[in-house]
Design a protein around this nucleic acid. Structure first.
Lengths: 207, 207, 207, 207
DNA sequence: GATGAATGAGGGTTCATTCAT
DNA sequence: TATGAATGAACCCTCATTCAT
């Protein structure tokens, strides 16, 4: 009772529904996934979903909040663990992001494909978790710029967007290939290489 | 009269429908846009749409082919005009892409948001125009690598994905801000800077 | 409560829908009857029909099964009650059939008119209940032939078809006349007379 | 011009449309056959059909008139040729009817299945050709009764209905079997046998 | 809380019919 | 006459949401 009043169901139904939604959204897309499918996958009645979520939109938003909280936490931990230069931290971030993708492709599928979709989520919904995500990334960049490790050519917020875009697209192409065509975790090095050193053949300072 | 005898309506109804679809998809999303809305915007009857397109899915796919053909042509032209190094060509590509985005935000909105939506379009539909798009970009990179202008650290196909992801994300954030927050065309330089030279403060070879 | 736990709605919605469908099909024909009409007549929402039937076709097939089960049972009972010769049994069958017609003209209308409509019902649907119906009739004939009561001039299956055709056509002409022009139950004697003794003026064997 | 003003197209388009309609109705049913299909089969434009027929209903009615005129004429000729007793004439009628069925299964299909269907044609349309058909049959019976050749047990109009019903049902079952299961023309003898002599084992007058 | 039968608005699609050429 | 592109009313069916139990 005490636990329930805190908004945490003792039976974990909310989580089961969110996990079921993740699966269904990944498989069929937000519009293709039916509430009945999700309820069935979660082992609850259709109506039960409405005890935990206002409506289908709210379910997607709630899923996003739920999943992103974990993602941001793990990325933040990875960054924190990577003591040292901005380069090291960015590398840790990128690797952690693509590792998460490979570990939970269903979640990645929804994040990468479904979440862009509707004006409901990108236009009206402020998306605080995604803002946290970008802030984590841009924070590392900003710090690196302040410390003189990174070029100031690109404003941190945009640099973060660019890196996220690169990661996201790489994740998407990996997911579409069924995870077969290349090693997504090793692909992290490509993103690191391109966004840190660039494609141009460097004429590094000679000793 | 003579023109009509070719069996192709001179009234350009197909194009009007495609343009109306672009507008409606951009505004409401694929699932949110109603056939009736599109017909109304195109100034035709609902049924007329089905004289030109098999169904709503086919309308989106057809729109994609129609729009991407132009996009790829313009990007190819921009690349062709940019004689010289791979660096110059990539810069031209990126600028042209973001210029197109700024010139036709509705089209960009659909491309960037709606096209990711899985089932019919990324999973089932092979998307030959998008493949052309990526091929154009990876071709420039591959050539640059062969000429020794670009590093071989990243395979051309993945480098192209990374650049596209960066561009796409930048375009999306610009579109979501209503085109107000920053100059998307000038943002091209950020993408160029990051993907060619990288973020790391270069210690260029000094004489 | 206890009854409901069986998973079968005690409110008899399925039967109400079938009865409403019977009425609407009789009045407007299968294609003319709208799902909304049937739902309205049954006092349920449109969507409710789809909880009990896959689609409109399934509704007609289900109606047929539902109604024919009763018809065959009653005809079988009539035949069973008519102990004695094949002649007696056939007479009982014919009278029972036309009595049913007069008692439920709507059902007869649908059976006689709508069910012939080809595609879904006679060509694809195997119609097991109608097969039962014919089997009952041909069984009586076959038995009569074996016992030497009936001529072997016509194979039982075809004789059954011929009798059914006669009954069906008589029912149809009665239904089209609004049941006013003649007494359908007494018309049974005509069918009996013709199919058992024939039209030809019999020169019965004289002692 | 003179010929056309008489309502007879010199190019025979009306007939081509009627023949095409027959084929399409037989294949797909009245509701399943599309005007576009019929126009295509007739080698005319959709709109052309409306130069010859008021609407789709009128097309079916017109087809019926067109086809029944021929059927009645041929049956009348068969009856006329069969000089002699009512028995002979009825036999000729039945054989001619089933011969027509076997010669033109498509027409038979429409007559037997589609024409019953809609209230448009049985309830509102007076169906004068079908009345002619029944009149021909009942006329033979009436005459036979007057001449004492046939029993007066069944009123001629109803006897005609019964024979037609038998024929129609036999035709339908033959058509549904794709004309493979039995010889429809030889089946004529069954109808003759049953409706003239009946099923009951006759104890014919002994010499 | 939990259920799931019931709801009914909504929309994609069809196709008989029209009419400008 | 003939055409066939265009029309738009009509309708089956889906599915998010509700609510009596």
């Amino acid at each position: 009772m005490a636990a329930q009043s805190a908004g945490v169901s003792t039976s974990g139904k909310r989580e089961r529904i969110l996990a079921a939604a993740e699966m269904c959204f990944a498989e069929a897309g937000f519009f293709g996934a039916k509430i009945a499918d999700i309820a069935n996958a979660a082992g609850v009645a259709d109506g039960t979903i409405y005890l935990y979520f206002r409506n289908k939109d709210d379910l997607l938003i709630s899923w996003f909040e739920w999943r992103m909280e974990e993602v941001v936490a793990r990325l933040a931990a990875a960054v924190a663990d990577a003591a040292g230069s901005a380069e090291t931290k960015l590398t840790a971030f990128v690797r952690a992001y693509l590792t998460l993708t490979s570990e939970n492709p269903a979640a990645a599928e929804v994040l990468t494909v479904e979440l862009r979709q509707s004006s409901k989520f990108i236009k009206e919904y402020k998306n605080p978790r995604f803002a946290d995500f970008l802030k984590l990334l841009s924070g590392v960049i900003e710090e690196g710029q302040k410390r003189g490790e990174l070029s100031r050519a690109v404003p941190p917020a945009h640099a973060a967007r660019i890196i996220f875009g690169a990661l996201d697209e790489l994740a998407r192409s990996w997911l579409l290939g069924g995870g077969q065509k290349f090693d997504i975790v090793r692909a992290a090095d490509w993103v690191v290489s391109m966004t840190l050193s660039g494609l141009v053949q460097q004429k590094r300072s000679t000793p």
